[in-house]
């Protein structure tokens, strides 16, 4: 009973926040509502058991991204942050709900959550779950996969983040006249 109520409430919050982000008239309010949307998404991740992802979603989505948007908005004139929206095109009004129904229909064929016989759960996950402590002597399976089995992957991800930071600093750096 409470399970169903939780899902319905989360779904309601997420859909409300997502649509309010688009419908609100001012960009500043839109940014804050987007931050709250990230918080609700973090709740979903935590509910699915992915606490790492929930952490990152809450901190980056609600914290860092909001600050980046705000800092950008501070540099714009007030007339740029107030929106005048043209009426949506007819193709979008008719086509998007149709696409949604199609996706819902296709979602029937997805394996249910935590199904032990679904393709991702039979490929290599059982090996990690059973052997990771013997192989890596690390209690947390996620950490052993990230830092040990796939250490190269994490290393290159770090290189990507480093490159992104350097590129941003170079792009945004004021050229000396």
């Amino acid at each position: 009973m409470t399970y169903a109520i939780n899902i319905a409430l989360l779904l309601l919050l997420i859909v409300t926040a997502a649509s309010a982000t688009f419908l609100v008239k001012e960009l500043m309010s839109s940014v804050f509502i987007l931050g709250s949307y990230s918080f609700f998404l973090a709740l979903v991740w935590a509910w699915l058991g992915a606490v790492d992802v929930a952490f990152v979603e809450a901190v980056i989505g609600a914290g860092l991204a909001t600050v980046l948007f705000l800092v950008t908005l501070f540099d714009t004139a007030p007339k740029d942050s107030r929106l005048r929206r043209p009426p949506p095109p007819l193709a979008g009004v008719l086509g998007l709900p149709l696409l949604g129904v199609l996706l819902l229909f296709a979602a029937n064929d997805l394996p249910s959550l935590g199904d032990p016989s679904s393709p991702p759960n039979v490929h290599i996950s059982p090996y990690y779950l059973q052997q990771s402590y013997a192989d890596t002597l690390t209690p947390n399976v996620v950490t052993s996969v990230l830092m040990d089995y796939r250490g190269f992957d994490t290393l290159i991800e770090t290189v990507v983040i480093f490159t992104a930071g350097i590129a941003c600093a170079l792009l945004l750096k004021e050229t000396k006249s």
Binding site: L68, V71, F162, C168, A169, L172, K173
Partner: peptide, 10 residues
């Protein structure tokens, strides 16, 4: 990286 992006943006 995070600080450098925000500093250069702000």
């Amino acid at each position: 990286t995070g600080i450098s992006i925000v500093v250069s943006l702000a």
